[in-house]
Design a binder for these strands. Sequence first.
DNA 1: ACCTGAACACCGTTCAAGT
DNA 2: ACCTGAACACCGTTCAAGT
Lengths: 210, 210
Amino acid sequence: MPRPSQPLLSMERIRECALEIIDTAGLEALSMRRLAERLGVRAASLYNYVPNKDELLHDLANSMMDQVDVSGFGSDWVTGVTVWARSYHRALAEHPNLVPFIASGPARREAALRRADAVHGGLVEAGWSQRYATMIGASVKYLVVGSAMGSFAGGFVDDAEIYDERFPNLSRAHLLRSHAAEIDHASFELALHAFIEGLRRRYTETDSAE
Amino acid sequence: MPRPSQPLLSMERIRECALEIIDTAGLEALSMRRLAERLGVRAASLYNYVPNKDELLHDLANSMMDQVDVSGFGSDWVTGVTVWARSYHRALAEHPNLVPFIASGPARREAALRRADAVHGGLVEAGWSQRYATMIGASVKYLVVGSAMGSFAGGFVDDAEIYDERFPNLSRAHLLRSHAAEIDHASFELALHAFIEGLRRRYTETDSAE
DNA sequence: ACCTGAACACCGTTCAAGT
DNA sequence: ACCTGAACACCGTTCAAGT
């Protein structure tokens, strides 16, 4: 019998299947053995394509972050920050179960640093000091990561009846899962715009970009 | 030989030791077997005191969150939010390795809901609508959780020399670990104050608390 | 080149058994 | 009441062996 000329696995297939497990069953549900089983193969085979589990996760994280758009700094810093924050937020929201992995640990990767550099550069060019550029970048990151992690969606159990009398201020409508996604999005937008508004009012934009 | 009348274990000792492992070696370093070993006991013994590992972690999380101070809403909403955010931030910063656990998953616990209720109530009493009270509460939580997770400290490798030429905008001083803690704190304060400032400017406080 | 079985050193958790 | 040994069903990873 000749060996089948087509390999059973591919990086593509591995990534896809891993992400599917994470999205549907959670980060802790991903194991090399389960992943292999779904791919119709034994766990050891995966190591022909991936150095280890951690590297696979970093790989997924990186391709997620490729959607982050930093091009808005070509215009003024406000649209730069807004475009950056929104695309960042959208990228994380697409695979919420991967967010804890992305957010913990150093973002030591090439692409991440290139984006950080672009954000910092855009802010400095708009007249912010080095120090403020760093802090503004950090603040927006806090907002994005925080909203991806501590989102309302999934934060409360489904039947809000339980809470009704015990916690009078937490009214039903604000706890229902069906409204949670909308509230999450509105809260993020509020936080982002209020933050930017606060920045504009409080500090002089010494030489603002046109 | 009589059985030793004093038990070897106690909830106190278990919690203390678990937290020490998490703080010094990280969340993933905590295993029931390693914890037992440090306590001079076998893993199975722990189950006389703790239903399972997850419950132990929730227990640690809860006692951390007891430090969150919601009393500031006795005065105006600005100090209410500020006191809340700072104490929340401080609590998380004390055990950063536990933050991913705290931030993921529903905060379904009694004490957490009581605090959420207090925040919401305080904001509504200050004249914010139900909807805005919810969004403001969420926004601040985003900031606190985000700053605890995506903190600069530990976010970059120690020798910043590597970055110097490759990423011209990310200057050395902003990447050094020694400065990271200070930048983190300053960024959090900037974000919080700019957010509050933005809120005050943009929306009428219809009937502000005296 | 790619896949496998077997092995190693780990997990969380249960449970009958000991004192 | 509290601790233990042994077991069960899992992990990630390596490696000699097969094709």
